[in-house]
Computed example of a mutant assay.
Amino acid sequence: MPRPRSFDIDEAIKGATALFWKNGYEGTSLADLTSDIGIAPASLYFAFDSKAGLFRRVLDYYYRSYLGRVDEKALSQATAREVVKTMLYGLVDLYTDRTHPPGCLSVKCSQAYAKEAEVQEELTKLRHARRKRLALRFRAAQEDGDLPPNADPDALAVFAIVIGWGLAFAAQTGASRADLRRTVETSLGGWPT
């Protein structure tokens, strides 16, 4: 008969999220995880299969609790410009919130180009899904006449994602919320009217 789990899975995922966000995927060791979460390596493997398995759960939690909230609020806006504006200002607030490490967990974990293919696949899926949702929203905006006929919804989605990545990198290296807000304001000057 298996022994009952002696730790809370949700709390373990939250603790691992903080570590991966602070140190990146490659910079977070198994010893760091087990020490911080307070579980034995065998328990971590039993619960999550591997460090990469735990990271998949962390990405899911990060998206639902952080990035997803920004995206959901942005995608509900009435115009494509408001979608991008809400998304970028929301990212600024997320990336500079002092209750967690600065920047973006998924961008930070992508920086070292994690060697594990499984990890890269998860990060790539997250990026592509966000880009696709934006492109679909911009395509609908174009069909509604909110964007000009010559606008490229796919390119606009990439534009928004790339600006978001830049904000994440800048926040990680100490840019202030005010600096990043000015960057968003400047970038919106390039939005098609």
Rank of each mutant, 00 (worst) to 15 (best):
residue 84 V to S: 00
residue 113 Y to A: 13
residue 101 P to V: 04
residue 140 A to G: 07
residue 124 T to R: 11
residue 122 E to Q: 04
residue 90 G to K: 00
residue 152 D to M: 10
residue 113 Y to L: 14
residue 115 K to G: 12
residue 116 E to R: 14
residue 81 R to Y: 07
residue 84 V to N: 05
residue 62 Y to H: 02
residue 84 V to Q: 02
residue 130 R to C: 09
residue 140 A to E: 10
residue 109 C to W: 01
residue 123 L to R: 10
residue 130 R to E: 15
residue 140 A to C: 11
residue 112 A to N: 15
residue 88 L to I: 02
residue 148 P to F: 15
residue 66 Y to W: 09
residue 124 T to L: 14
residue 146 D to G: 06
residue 113 Y to G: 08
residue 82 E to N: 07
residue 94 L to Y: 01
residue 96 T to F: 05
residue 118 E to Q: 15
residue 125 K to C: 08
residue 149 P to I: 11
residue 66 Y to K: 04
residue 144 D to V: 10
residue 102 P to Y: 10
residue 146 D to I: 05
residue 144 D to K: 11
residue 60 D to Q: 08
residue 126 L to T: 05
residue 102 P to D: 11
residue 108 K to R: 08
residue 120 Q to A: 11
residue 106 S to W: 00
residue 105 L to S: 02
residue 136 L to W: 03
residue 151 A to M: 09
residue 141 A to K: 03
residue 118 E to I: 13
residue 133 R to W: 06
residue 138 F to P: 00
residue 80 A to I: 05
residue 151 A to G: 13
residue 70 V to N: 13
residue 70 V to Y: 06
residue 71 D to G: 05
residue 80 A to R: 08
residue 95 Y to N: 00
residue 133 R to D: 03
residue 150 N to G: 08
residue 60 D to C: 15
residue 74 A to V: 13
residue 62 Y to E: 04
residue 69 R to N: 10
residue 92 V to Q: 08
residue 109 C to M: 06
residue 124 T to H: 12
residue 132 K to I: 15
residue 69 R to H: 07
residue 76 S to H: 08
residue 72 E to A: 06
residue 86 T to L: 02
residue 86 T to P: 08
residue 128 H to Q: 13
residue 144 D to H: 07
residue 85 K to L: 05
residue 78 A to E: 10
residue 135 A to F: 08
residue 105 L to E: 01
